[in-house]
Amino acid sequence: MEAARQTHAAGKVQDYLKQIGRVVVIEGKELAVFRTSGDEFYALENRNPHPKGGPLAEGIVSGHYLYDPLYDWKIDLRTGEVQAPDKGQAAVYPVHIDGDTIFIGI
């Protein structure tokens, strides 16, 4: 049985630029938080699933996808799934907004 997630405040909506990743550390986990041009928020572990690793926060956001310029990978922000022909999975964390505060579940 999975333990219940706790939510943690991760700043205000206005603290996040659209289509730019921001690193947030919660409970020792380094997360990459993204705000899309449509004002949707996504949080992924800030660790590229590529065998050589690297940060995800430096990727380029377009729609619901993150483009990693280092390895030319495309990752779905909603699921963390690396798109074909590449394979891999980034850990995703639930995000919700209450008022103007962003909360992330860990």
Score class of each variant (00 low, 15 high):
2 E>K: 09
4 A>Q: 13
4 A>T: 13
4 A>I: 13
5 R>F: 09
8 H>V: 12
9 A>S: 15
11 G>L: 09
13 V>I: 10
18 K>V: 10
18 K>N: 09
20 I>K: 15
21 G>C: 05
21 G>N: 07
22 R>Q: 15
23 V>P: 03
25 V>G: 06
27 E>M: 03
27 E>C: 07
27 E>T: 09
27 E>Q: 11
31 L>D: 06
32 A>F: 01
32 A>H: 05
32 A>M: 03
33 V>D: 05
36 T>M: 05
37 S>T: 11
38 G>I: 05
43 A>N: 11
45 E>N: 04
46 N>Q: 07
50 H>R: 10
57 A>P: 00
58 E>D: 14
63 G>D: 07
63 G>K: 07
64 H>C: 14
65 Y>E: 14
66 L>Y: 05
66 L>G: 03
67 Y>E: 02
68 D>S: 10
68 D>W: 02
70 L>I: 13
72 D>C: 06
73 W>C: 00
75 I>K: 03
75 I>E: 04
78 R>F: 04
79 T>W: 10
79 T>G: 08
80 G>F: 01
81 E>D: 09
81 E>K: 11
81 E>P: 00
82 V>N: 03
83 Q>M: 14
83 Q>K: 15
85 P>F: 04
85 P>R: 01
88 G>Y: 01
89 Q>V: 04
89 Q>A: 04
89 Q>D: 01
90 A>Y: 00
90 A>G: 05
91 A>V: 13
92 V>K: 14
94 P>W: 02
96 H>T: 14
99 G>D: 00
102 I>Q: 01
103 F>Y: 15
103 F>A: 02
104 I>R: 03
105 G>L: 08
106 I>K: 07
